[in-house]
């Protein structure tokens, strides 16, 4: 019979130690974690970025990733969106009893790979096992710290009129890839989640220009919600052009079928950058040279009038409002 996670794996006893040592320590091997003290102790100097996130995606495996890769990428990306170099993460696992151990090792393995690629270390962790029905297979909570270099000032409130809006690639892949696996909805698609760590992309963009005003990853709520957040925070309006926004044909087709608008569908490996006009092309070029932003494009610009609004020029040359997402398009997408 397949080995499953038992309540005893979270008890703090022998089984728990076995899980930590064989399951996690081996995979995430690093000196800070290996000490097994109550906290990871390390030196850092400079301005710190510190973030936390929880991952409850359903299903836990989806085309292009799983909850583990998502947890690493999501946390790394939150740090990177502040202009920080991501360094250390913590991971807390809340496991529903009965989760096959094989699935857990697969997830641990993909966490290891994602962390390697993102060049971060998992330095603290925790495991709890809850009764069947008290969680859905696996939830992961994370925290992350990174360091922000001198002279970098990135914030959602920094957009100013005249700035250009850059998008790193086609939108909606993650949301549609996850939905395609949902019970009651499942449909066949070649589409994969875009889930990716964007630390190196941000580093290369910052190398091209240290004047980047805003960075944000359009996750839940999609591009539309992210642009609305930026417009409100910066008290500006953002005008985008429908035809400049890259969307894959498969995403468009799935959206038509499901009644979604790709502007509201979640991404996990994309970013929006707001950059002064004079640096926009430099940053765009740097983006297009990175594997994760080959299709980056300038999709619009920041304006002063009607602060808080996002307006889109449609393919017919008309204008329409792009509002924030109302209600939930899809629960548990990340």
């Amino acid at each position: 019979m397949e080995d499953k996670i038992l309540l005893a794996h979270g008890s703090g006893g022998k089984l728990a130690h076995e899980l930590v040592e064989k399951g996690f320590l081996k995979a995430f091997d690093n000196p800070l974690l290996a000490k097994l003290d109550d906290s990871a102790v390390f030196n850092l100097s400079g301005r710190l970025a510190f973030t936390t996130d929880s991952y409850v995606v359903s299903p836990i495996f989806f085309p292009g990733g799983d909850i583990g890769k998502l947890a690493v990428c999501g946390t790394v990306n939150d740090l990177a969106m502040s202009g920080a170099k991501p360094l250390y993460l913590s991971l807390s696992f809340i496991i529903e009893e009965g989760l096959p151990q094989g699935e857990l090792s697969q997830i641990v393995d993909s966490i290891y790979k994602a962390a390697q690629e993102a060049n971060v270390e998992i330095v603290a962790g925790d495991t709890k096992v809850v009764n069947r029905g008290s969680a859905d297979k696996l939830f992961i909570n994370t925290a992350g710290v990174g360091i922000i270099a001198e002279g970098i000032d990135i914030s959602g409130s920094n957009a100013s009129p005249g700035d250009k809006v850059l998008l790193s690639g086609p939108i909606g892949d993650h949301g549609i890839a996850v939905v395609s696996q949902r019970e009651g909805l499942s449909f066949s698609t070649q589409l994969k989640s875009d889930c990716a760590p964007l630390g190196s992309l941000v580093a290369e963009m910052l190398e091209a220009s240290s004047n980047i005003h805003c960075l944000r990853d359009p996750t839940r709520g999609g591009l539309a919600t992210t642009l609305n957040e930026l417009a409100k925070q910066s008290k500006v309006s953002i005008r985008i052009e429908e035809e400049k926004i890259p969307v894959r044909e498969e995403v468009l087709a799935a959206c038509e079928m499901l009644g979604f608008d790709p502007l509201y569908v979640a991404n996990e490996g994309k970013l929006v950058a707001i950059v002064p006009t004079k640096d926009a092309n430099k940053v765009l070029k740097a983006m297009q040279q990175n594997h994760y932003a080959k299709d980056a494009a300038i999709i619009g610009e920041v304006q002063a009038e009607r602060p808080g609004r996002v307006v889109m020029k449609t393919c017919l040359g008309a204008s329409r409002i792009v509002d924030m997402l109302v209600g939930d398009l899809l629960p548990r997408i990340c």
């Binding site: 608008d261 449609t314 393919c315 017919l316 040359g317 008309a318 204008s319 329409r320």
Partner: peptide, 9 residues
């Protein structure tokens, strides 16, 4: 009609 602004054109 509304999403693409057809009335406007």
């Amino acid at each position: 009609i509304f999403k693409y602004g057809i009335r406007q054109v």
